[in-house]
Design a protein around this nucleic acid. Structure first.
Ligand SMILES: [Mn+2]
Ligand SMILES: [Mn+2]
Ligand SMILES: [Mn+2]
Ligand SMILES: [Mn+2]
Lengths: 246, 246
DNA sequence: TTCAATTGTAAGATGTGTCTAACATGGAGG
DNA sequence: CCTCCATGTTAGACACATCTTACAATTGAA
C-alpha cells in the first residue's frame, strides 16, 4: 500500500523534540534537534524535509524549523502520551526518573487513545476515591510484598498471615501435583529469572519431577518444560490445585 | 557500531510466533509463521535465516523451524513481557481483549526488566493486600468517575461530594486565573480531545481570555496556547491556584 | 508414474532511518 | 577582500523489514 499510515515513531520523536525546543527557545535548529535526539545533523535534515512535506513543520533550510498549527496539534498528542506513560512509571510504579523517561518515549508511539483514556481514568480514580484516601498508592509503595528493601517491617501493611493462607513454596508440591503461581517471594536476580521464564502470578504449572536431593526440579508450563534450582523453587509461592483431570 | 544489540522487535515477534506454533503443533512451518504474523512467506525465510545465524532456531530449509534451547529462553522472555502487559490492559484497565493483545505485542519490545518487575509487584499487591480485600480493582472498575457508562449510580463508590471539594469547571475561572487539572468530567470525543491537547490531571494552566459570550476560551499550557470550546471548558475540572508570581 | 497444487526460496525493489565524508554557506576577524 | 569556522546539506553506504515475481522442491492424486 501507499503511505496511508500515520507518522512513524522516528518522525513523532522529531516532532516532539521540535515542539520542546520551540517552547524553550523560539525556534529549533538542526543542530539542537540532533543533539537532543542523540543523532547526527545529517540525519535531521531529511527528517525535517519529510515533516515539511507532511505539512507539520515550516522548514527554512539553513535557517530554522518551526511547527505549523497541524504540527503543534500532532506534537501535543505525542507529548500527552509520553506524559501519561511517564507518570505511570515514575509516580505509580516508582521507577527511576530516567528509566521512566526512556521507556515512556519508546512506548508512546503505540499507545492507543483508548488506553491513554483508561490510564488517566485510573489516575483520576486513585486521586478521588474516598475509600482509599490518598493511601492506596502509599500502601503499595510501602508494601513489603511489593518492595525489595526492608524485607519485613513496613507499617501500614499487614499482609503476613492474611492472603498467605493457602500458599506454599513450590518446593512443597510433590511430583505430579499442580499449582498456580500466587507471588514470587524474592527480589533481584532470582525474581527476574522466574519472571522471564513466564512464572507470573496466575500462571498454572505442574511439578514434573524432582532430581535426587530435590535440587533441580522440572516444571511444566503449558507444553514446555523448565528446570528450577532449589532456591528458585523456594521463592515461588503457589496455591496447590486439584490434580489434572487429563 | 557492530551488531552488539539485542533482537530487533520484528525478530522478537518471529521468535514468539515460532514458540507458540511449536507449542501447538510440534514444529513451525514458514507458511504458518507467515499467516500468524500477517506477512508473506517471502519475508519469513530470511528472518528465519537470521534467527538461525543467531543460534536461536534450528531451521532446516523447506522442512521445519524449531527453537534451540537459547531460543526457547529468549522466546519465553518475550512472551512473559507480552503477558504482563496484556493482563495489565485487559484485567486492570479493562480494555477489550483485542486491543490489549495488539498493544501488548507492540510494547513488549521496549519493556525493561525493572518495569516488568514492578508491574508484577503491583499485581501481587492488589491480590494480597488485606486492606483492599479484592475490592480495590472492583471499585475502580465500577467507579462512576472512571467509567463512561452509567453516569451516576454505581454502588460501592461515593465520590460525589468527597474529593470534589475544591473543584470547579474550568469555565468558572476568570481570565488571568490559574488552575490545575483535577479530572476530566466527560467521556468519549471531548475527553479524547482534551487529553490529546495535554490536559492531563495534574497539568497546570492559565486562563488567558474569554471570547465575548465566553465561547472560545484561550488557555495557556506552558508557553503554548490552545483554544477550548465552551463545552470542553465545562468538562474540565480544575482546582484554582493562587495567581502566578511572575 | 506423472504432474499439478502446495509450499518454500531467491532475487530485486521500495521505504525508512541511520551513519560518514565531502561539500556548501554565511558571517566575523583579520 | 579574504579566510576560517560553525552550521547545514548532499551523496553514498548499510541495515532492516517488507513486498513481488519467478523459480524450485515435495507431495499426493490420478
Ligand atoms: Mn518517542
Ligand atoms: Mn517522547
Ligand atoms: Mn511484539
Ligand atoms: Mn507479543
Amino acid at each position: 500500500m501507499g503511505p496511508v499510515e500515520v507518522l512513524t515513531p522516528a518522525l513523532e520523536d522529531y516532532l516532539e523534540t521540535v515542539f520542546l525546543l520551540v517552547e524553550r527557545h523560539k525556534f529549533a535548529r538542526v543542530r539542537d534537534i540532533a543533539v537532543e535526539r542523540g543523532v547526527k545533523p545529517g540525519s535531521v535534515s531529511p527528517a525535517m524535509k519529510r515533516l515539511a512535506d507532511l505539512g507539520l513543520v515550516k522548514y527554512v533550510q539553513r535557517e530554522y524549523v518551526d511547527l505549523t498549527e497541524t504540527g503543534r496539534v500532532a506534537a501535543r498528542r505525542v507529548l500527552a502520551r509520553h506524559t501519561v506513560l511517564f507518570r505511570f512509571f515514575r509516580d505509580l510504579l516508582k521507577l527511576p526518573e530516567e528509566l521512566s523517561e526512556s521507556e515512556a518515549c519508546a512506548m508512546e508511539h503505540s499507545l492507543s487513545s483508548a488506553t491513554m483514556d483508561r490510564m488517566v481514568s485510573l489516575f483520576e480514580f486513585l486521586d478521588a476515591c474516598p475509600q482509599s484516601p490518598d493511601s492506596l498508592l502509599a500502601r503499595f509503595h510501602q508494601c513489603p510484598i511489593a518492595n525489595a528493601d526492608c524485607e519485613d517491617c513496613k507499617p501500614g501493611c499487614e499482609h503476613e498471615g492474611a492472603g498467605v493462607e493457602a500458599t506454599n513454596p513450590l518446593s512443597e508440591l510433590a511430583a505430579g501435583e499442580r499449582g498456580i503461581v500466587v507471588r514470587i517471594g524474592s527480589h533481584g536476580a532470582i525474581r527476574q529469572r522466574l519472571l522471564n521464564m513466564g512464572m507470573l502470578p496466575g500462571t498454572e504449572l505442574t511439578v514434573e519431577r524432582y532430581a535426587p536431593g530435590g535440587d533441580p526440579v522440572w516444571i511444566r508450563l503449558g507444553t514446555s518444560q523448565v528446570a528450577l534450582r532449589r532456591h528458585e523453587a523456594d521463592a515461588l509461592h503457589v496455591k496447590a490445585l486439584a490434580p489434572e483431570i487429563a
